[in-house]
Design a protein around this nucleic acid. Structure first.
Length: 418
RNA sequence: CGGGGUGUGGCGCAGUUGGCUAGCGCGCCGCGUUUGGGACGCGGAGGUCGAAGGUUCAAGUCCUUUCACCCCGACCA
């Protein structure tokens, strides 16, 4: 992408009505646009980041047999009456609206019911199970208070997966498979070292615990106790002697931290399948209950989380695999030979499948460098009179302070490896 | 929803006890000089001061209502 064609601009100032660092940086760099409190639009660079994160999640869900669907944002009242979740007393953060004929609709805040209802058409036999089904879709929640930029919005993008199993043993197996996939997701996102599987309250459905994935961060809203050797944590909300004993954790080995919940998985048991009358026939033709699990990852929250997690005083710092581009190509000056070389390099890199932000604007070097830093592009390549004279390219990593001289081939191998 | 705060060109802000034509910086447009860490000069464009109502000779400024946004709390991926 040529920056001369990019309609977004960076700003020297941060918006006065945002105090969350992630939103400040993402708005300042032109990645997102604030529509209203807790509702953000993704502009070209932000959209790329969002898609890159979603794609990593998608690949890992597919790898364990997840099948992607897209459910609807509009939801019928009737379905949620069956599971006793329609009443505002039960779920108080729904956006609800009406059809012209006055019947009520909900705007999707979760999708257990619609998923189960859709599967009802197809699941009859033990041969139809198990199933992993997921979607990446906007969720709408009428939170009393939106805050922390992308970390708590009223409209946000979420991956939600559901498992349907025949037996408890089968459920447990699926559950751990998903848990392992989550670990891979956070590793690929660069959050592996700072993210802990964390025991939390299982909710109203079960005596069991649920599992949250908490990334250690000063902006975290949750207090957790971490066993760093076991790489396991427990949420403060269930931090009791009884639970510690149950989980085999020792108080003296736990360290208190604050974390951002970047995902959670929890058992649903048979609550939804029973409520919606979905059963399967076993080998003997006997009707059996279906055990469900639920697996969420806030994709848009991760954009904010990662933005804030890696940022430094110059701006964003994206991990290479989710950055909106691999290379920021800064062309300095208006020397024709320089322009020609930069154009050719842009074509070459793009041809090799490397995403490049080509700064072909007629602005001074300092502005280009500042923008490259602010946008957090992993590699900055300079083409200028100097590099022409030395017959090389200048390469600097976003996280390094020193630049180095490289050839095109060296550049390609470095950039492609990352 | 309780408490606190803020709304003034695209962004960040100033605007005194009500008083003339509402300013400043950034950004934007034009011309020129510049060109390795957000350049400089000259000339421009752009604002019903969140909205509605009221007080007054006169309202960005005072009063009432209302909307939006931010922070703390409660609630939540």
């Amino acid at each position: 992408m040529r920056l001369s064609h990019l309609f977004t601009k960076t700003s020297k100032t941060v918006p006065g009505d945002e105090t969350a660092r992630n939103a400040q940086l993402l708005i300042q760099s032109g990645f997102i646009h604030k529509e209203m409190a807790g509702v953000y639009a993704y502009l070209p660079l932000g959209k790329r980041v969002l898609d890159n994160i979603a794609q990593i999640v998608r690949e890992e869900m597919n790898a364990i047999g997840g099948l992607e669907v897209q459910m609807t944002a509009l939801q019928p009242q009737e379905l949620f009456e069956k599971t006793d979740r329609w009443d505002d007393k039960k779920v108080d953060n729904w956006f609800k609206t009406r059809l012209k004929n006055d019947s009520e609709l909900g705007l999707g805040f979760t999708h257990e019911e619609p998923i189960v209802d859709a599967l009802k058409d197809f699941v009859n036999s033990y041969k139809d199970l198990p199933i992993f089904i997921y979607q990446i879709q906007s969720k709408f929640r009428n939170e009393l208070r939106a805050k922390s930029g992308l970390l708590r919005g009223r409209e946000f993008l979420m991956k939600d997966m559901y498992s349907l199993a025949r037996t408890q043993a089968e459920h447990d197996e699926l559950y751990e498979k998903a848990a392992a996939a989550y670990v891979r997701v956070y590793e690929r996102l660069g959050l592996g070292d700072s993210t802990y599987r964390t025991y939390a309250d299982g909710g109203v459905f079960t005596e069991k615990f649920s599992d949250e994935y908490q990334t250690i961060s000063p902006i975290g809203e949750d207090t957790i106790y971490v066993d760093e050797t076991k790489r396991i944590a427990i949420n403060k909300e269930i931090y009791t002697d009884e639970n510690l004993a149950k989980l085999g954790l020792k108080k003296e080995e736990l360290v208190e931290k604050t974390g951002v919940e970047v995902g959670n998985i929890f058992p649903l048991e048979t609550k939804y399948t029973d409520a919606l009358d979905v059963y399967y026939a076993d080998e003997n033709g006997q009707q059996q209950q279906i055990i469900m699990g639920c697996y969420g990852i806030g994709i848009s929250r991760l954009v904010g989380m990662i933005a804030e997690h890696f940022a430094d005083d110059k701006g964003l710092v994206w991990p290479a695999n989710i950055a909106p581009a691999q290379v920021y190509l800064a062309r300095l000056g208006d020397n024709e030979a320089v322009i020609k070389q930069a154009d050719e390099l842009y074509d070459r890199l793009t041809g090799e499948g490397v995403e490049v932000l080509y700064d072909d604007r007629d602005v001074r070097p300092g502005e280009k460098f500042a923008d490259a830093d602010l946008m957090g592009i992993p590699w900055r390549v300079v083409v200028s009179d100097k590099t022409q004279a030395s017959n090389s390219l200048e390469l600097k990593a976003r996280i390094e302070t020193e630049a180095r001289q490289v050839s095109v081939e060296e550049l390609l191998s470095l950039v492609k490896r990352s």
